[in-house]
């Protein structure tokens, strides 16, 4: 464990060409530098996502340039754009098809809460009603730099995940669900309108 080796000693050893590490660090280092996102865009934000992956912003610097068209090969779902009620079941299904460990970035105002289209009858007011989200990026659409920042935040999160012990990462806990029920199309709305196991909104006083 890295905790058992003194930081100063570690860096001194590193200067001499000896690298001391732990399985957890090595494992997380490998995971965080090869996040494969699902190639999946919904609306305007998807264009900024493509711009992030293109030559100027170059997502490859963070190891995330391998966009996979199949959810079976993806680690990360970037929900880029407005989630409509007609699309929401498909997104939950795609999330369920992704293998663990999996992460979700909710990109843009629409994916967070419905954004400017919140008052639309066919707009889902936030993808976190059905699936858990790791990083939220505000913006309409967020700039490519913001997506890069979200990527770095996610890498930080992965770095901090423990493999053993009480506080081990949720995907290692067998009791934690990795699939969530897919909502059905109802006569007026999706059924159910939110998954209560995932969605716990704050209640604010209204006068």
């Amino acid at each position: 464990m890295s905790g058992q080796v003194d930081e100063g000693l570690r860096s001194e050893l590193q200067k001499q060409g000896i690298w001391v590490t732990s399985t957890q660090e090595l494992y997380n280092w490998g995971r965080r530098n090869s996040i494969w996102p699902l190639q999946f865009g919904l609306a305007c934000c998807a264009i900024e996502m493509i711009a992030t992956a293109a030559s100027r912003y170059d997502l490859a610097r963070f190891g995330g340039e391998v966009f996979r068209p199949s959810p079976r090969q993806a680690d990360l779902m970037i929900v880029a754009g407005t989630v409509t009620k007609k699309m929401a079941p498909q997104i939950v299904r795609l999330y369920n098809q992704m293998p663990d460990p999996k992460y979700v970035i909710s990109m843009g105002a629409c994916a967070i809460s419905g954004g400017p289209f919140k008052q639309g009858y066919n707009v889902l007011k936030g993808i976190d009603r059905y699936i858990p989200v790791d990083v939220y990026i505000p913006g309409c659409p967020p700039r490519p730099e913001a997506l890069l920042h979200a990527f770095m935040e996610l890498q930080r999160k992965i770095d901090g995940q423990k493999l053993t012990g009480e506080k081990k990462a949720p995907f290692l806990d067998r009791k934690q669900p990795s699939e969530f029920p897919v909502p059905a199309f109802g006569a007026h709305d999706l059924e159910p309108p939110a998954n209560p196991d995932v969605f716990r909104p704050p209640v604010v006083e209204r006068t």
Binding site: L42, T84, P116, F117
Partner: peptide, 21 residues
């Protein structure tokens, strides 16, 4: 319809300038 985000309905409920964005 997978990106039907009710632009027209929102446009009818907002001012003329409000639809510009």
């Amino acid at each position: 319809g997978y990106l039907h985000r009710n632009h027209e309905k929102i446009g009818e409920n907002t001012s003329y300038l409000g639809s510009m964005p």
